Structure formats: C-alpha cells, structure tokens
Amino acid sequence: MTTALQIGHIQPVQIHFEDLDAMGVVHNARYVLLLERALSGYWAEHGWAFDPTRPHFAEIFFVVREFSITYHVPISTVGTAAVHFWVEHLGTTSVVYGFRVLSADHGVVHAEGRRVQVRLDPATLRPSPMSPALRESIQPLVLTAGHLGS
C-alpha cells in the first residue's frame, strides 16, 4: 500500500549530530525517536502536550505495544527531515499509526512502518477507553478506505 501525502500529517523533525552512527548515517534505533519527535510536536500543537502538569495528561497515557519499521534509504546528514503519519486504525483503547520518514522535500522515503499504542489508566496500568474528546482529536488523522493507494 502506498499512502498519498495529502492524508494524515507531515511534521518537520530535526536530525541531530548524535542521531548519526559511526558510519555517518542515522542509527536505526533513532528512527523511533524521529517518530516520537513528530508525534509529540503534532499533539502539543493540538492541545495534547505530553506534560504531567497539563490537564489532558492522564487522557494521553499511552504505551507502545508494537513497532515495526522497514528502512529504504539512509539519512546521511544532520538538518531537517519530515515524518508523514496517519492513523490506520482507531480502537476503543488503541491506535495504530502508519508512518514514513521523508526527506525535507518529501521526495525520498527513508523508512516506513507502523506503531501500535494502547491507552492505559494511569492508576491501574490496565487498558482504558479513550475519551470522546481525544477520539475526536484523532479523527482527522484516520485513514479512510477512499485514501488507500495501490
């Protein structure tokens, strides 16, 4: 499946010197961090900051259940890249993100994958349903059948 750039959201992210490995390319484990930077930036801009002092923090208490990634073209420089992400599935307690790490001009797909998150109740650490307000905020990112490519 390919995903058009018009769906989901594209968030610029910074590649820092410490993201590079001994060969001068972004270390494979840092792609997880690039997705984190993109998601954190997006949700903070939309009023859902990952800050325990903020009112929404308990509602966005998510843990990663699954993460998969396929690498295509190494990133070999510091500077700006982009992460294109969308929601492939929105469940009662979980959300499945699809994502691509792109060059700054969006012309190169460096990596792509998916991440499954589960919302937990902060007190019990058990899966807990998302609030209607959170579900409404996620809705613009949800991939619909009409957006599927070939």
Score class of each variant (00 low, 15 high):
Met1Val: 12
Thr3Ser: 04
Leu5Lys: 05
His9Cys: 10
Ile10Cys: 12
Val13Asn: 00
His16Cys: 05
Glu18Leu: 13
Asp19Pro: 03
Asp19Glu: 13
Leu20Trp: 02
Leu20Lys: 06
Leu20Gly: 11
Asp21Thr: 14
Ala22Ser: 14
Met23Ala: 15
Met23Glu: 15
Val25Ser: 07
His27Asp: 14
His27Asn: 15
His27Arg: 07
Asn28Phe: 12
Ala29His: 03
Arg30Trp: 01
Tyr31Cys: 01
Val32Asp: 10
Val32Ser: 03
Leu34Asn: 01
Leu34Ile: 02
Glu36Val: 06
Glu36Gly: 12
Ala38Gly: 07
Leu39Val: 13
Ser40Tyr: 04
Gly41Glu: 02
His46Ala: 11
Phe50Met: 14
Phe50Glu: 14
Thr53Pro: 01
Thr53Met: 07
His56Ser: 12
Ala58Cys: 08
Glu59Gly: 07
Glu59Arg: 06
Ile60Trp: 07
Arg65Gly: 15
Glu66Tyr: 12
Ser76Lys: 11
Thr77Leu: 13
Thr77Ser: 15
Thr80Gln: 13
Ala82Gln: 14
Val83Asp: 00
Val83Ile: 08
His84Pro: 00
Phe85Met: 01
Val87Ala: 04
Glu88His: 09
Gly91Lys: 05
Gly91Trp: 09
Gly91Ser: 08
Thr92Cys: 11
Phe99Met: 04
Arg100His: 12
Arg100Asn: 12
Val101His: 01
Leu102Lys: 00
Ser103Arg: 06
Asp105Trp: 05
Val109Ser: 08
His110Ser: 03
His110Asp: 02
Arg114Leu: 01
Arg114Asn: 08
Val116Arg: 10
Gln117Trp: 11
Arg119His: 05
Leu120Ser: 03
Asp121Met: 02
Asp121Ser: 08
Pro122Cys: 04
Ala123Gln: 12
Ala123Glu: 12
Thr124Lys: 09
Arg126Gly: 05
Ser128His: 10
Ser128Met: 06
Ala133Phe: 02
Ser137Asn: 14
Ser137His: 11
Ile138Gly: 02
Gln139Pro: 04
Pro140Ser: 14
Leu141Tyr: 03
Val142Thr: 13
Thr144Arg: 10
Thr144Trp: 07
Ala145Arg: 09
Ala145Leu: 10
His147Thr: 10
His147Lys: 06
Leu148Gly: 04
Gly149Ile: 06
